[in-house]
Write a protein that binds this DNA or RNA. Structure first.
Ligand code: MN
Ligand code: MN
Ligand code: ZN
Ligand code: ZN
Lengths: 137, 137
DNA sequence: TTCAAAATTGAAATCATTGTAAATAATAAA
DNA sequence: TTTATTATTTACAATGATTTCAATTTTGAA
């Protein structure tokens, strides 16, 4: 609790009760929660909570670089407190999202950490060659 | 045109004019169009076209295995005619989505095909160890 | 205590997607 | 050809996540 306060203050974020709870929720939940998940968890403690606050806060955290949106499935934006980019594994049955080892390179493995791999999805983001030529930065 | 007809018929899909146009659109567009993109392109030729038809058709094509939804950004479901799974590159400036070499493994490269890589996003999909134990299939 | 700025809230708006049922087109049977 | 059956397309309403916005509450400095 005090730890979270410090982390937020270091990033120039005022540690309101809502923000602390949301950060706590992101730390504890091992499964990369959606905005809805976060809302439902914290609503039990703060019944006046607004969904707008969740969206405002994850936007703020993202802008400050302490949170990263993870988009794996349609209509599902999940949030990841880990700052370093790392691979994910999403279960097609229960929907849970697991963290995988950073720098992991699976070639033809069919299994990892006990999870059965059925599909792989890789995307790189950046600036394409056309936009680089245009030098519009 | 005749080629498309054959492909559809081989998969047991009746080649209506809408379906042919949608398939054609998916083949030509090098940039993995969204449902909206497809609609706007074909609407010029078929002004009676319904958006529902686009959604029905991409669902049908997906079920028949000739199309794959690609989800890279929030609120953006794109469609990919390539059946084999392959990595993508999405430009943060213009939004274009490029195909990359299959089996490509970028370690610490900062550039590929002239594109500047700023971020990498990897996700594996399958059945997690918990769900495997439960044997609920 | 007072007041302005920051944070939170709820309601309405937006927008992609889905559901549904009627309309239309294609096909087969008579 | 005419009629009946089925497949396909369409329009429109419903859904659900996210955004916008104005009003209210909280905070913290003077
Ligand atoms: Mn993660
Ligand atoms: Mn592709
Ligand atoms: Zn699972
Ligand atoms: Zn570009």
């Amino acid at each position: 609790m005090e730890k979270i306060k410090k982390i937020l203050e270091e990033k120039g974020i005022k540690p309101s009760i809502q923000r602390i709870k949301i950060f706590e929720c992101l730390m504890c939940d091992g499964d990369h929660p959606t905005a809805k998940d976060i809302y439902e968890i914290i609503f039990k403690e703060i019944p006046t909570l607004s969904k707008t606050t969740i969206y405002n806060t994850v936007k703020l955290f993202t802008d400050k670089g302490i949170l990263k949106p993870v988009r794996i499935r349609e209509g599902e934006v999940r949030y990841d407190i880990e700052s370093d980019s790392h691979p994910h594994f999403r279960c097609n049955k229960c929907g849970k999202v697991f963290d995988l080892e950073k720098n992991l390179l699976i070639k033809e493995k069919k299994e990892i950490d006990g999870h059965l791999i059925e599909e792989k999805c890789v995307c790189y983001l950046g600036v394409c060659r056309n936009c680089r030529r245009k030098r519009e930065h």
